[in-house]
Amino acid sequence: MRGEGGGRGAPQPFAVLVLEDGRAFHGRAYGAVGETFGEAVFSTGMTGYQETLTDPSYHRQVVVMTAPHVGNTGVNDEDPESARIWVSGYVVRDPARKPSNWRARRSLDEELVAQGVVGISGVDTRALTRHLRERGAMRVGIFSGNAIADEGT
Rank of each mutant, 00 (worst) to 15 (best):
S43G: 11
Y58K: 08
G48E: 05
A10V: 13
Y49T: 13
G38C: 08
G34K: 08
P56R: 11
A10Y: 12
L53N: 10
F25Q: 05
V16Q: 02
F37N: 02
Q12C: 04
Q12A: 15
F25E: 10
G38Y: 03
R23Q: 14
G34R: 10
F42L: 08
Q50F: 12
A29F: 02
V16H: 00
L19W: 05
G48Q: 06
G34T: 07
T44A: 15
L53E: 08
Y30W: 15
M46E: 10
V18W: 00
F25A: 09
Y49D: 09
E35L: 07
T54R: 12
E51M: 03
A15N: 06
Q12M: 12
T47S: 15
F42Y: 15
A29N: 01
S43I: 13
A40G: 14
S43F: 14
E51T: 02
H26M: 10
G48P: 14
R28I: 05
E39N: 04
Y58H: 14
G38P: 07
E39D: 12
R23K: 15
L19V: 04
G38S: 09
R23I: 12
A29L: 01
T47D: 12
A10I: 13
G38V: 11
P13F: 07
T52Q: 06
T52W: 00
L53I: 07
P13R: 06
Y49L: 13
E20T: 01
F25V: 07
E35G: 04
L19K: 07
G31S: 06
S43H: 14
E35N: 10
E51G: 02
V41H: 02
G48T: 11
G31L: 03
M46P: 00
E39T: 13
Y49G: 07
G34P: 08
Y49R: 13
Y30A: 05
S57V: 10
G27D: 03
F14M: 02
G45W: 08
Y49A: 14
E20R: 12
V33A: 03
A24V: 00
G27E: 05
F25W: 15
G27W: 05
G27T: 09
R28S: 14
F42P: 01
Y49Q: 11
V33Y: 01
G34Q: 04
G38L: 09
G22H: 11
Q12D: 14
V33W: 08
Y30G: 04
A10C: 04
G22Y: 05
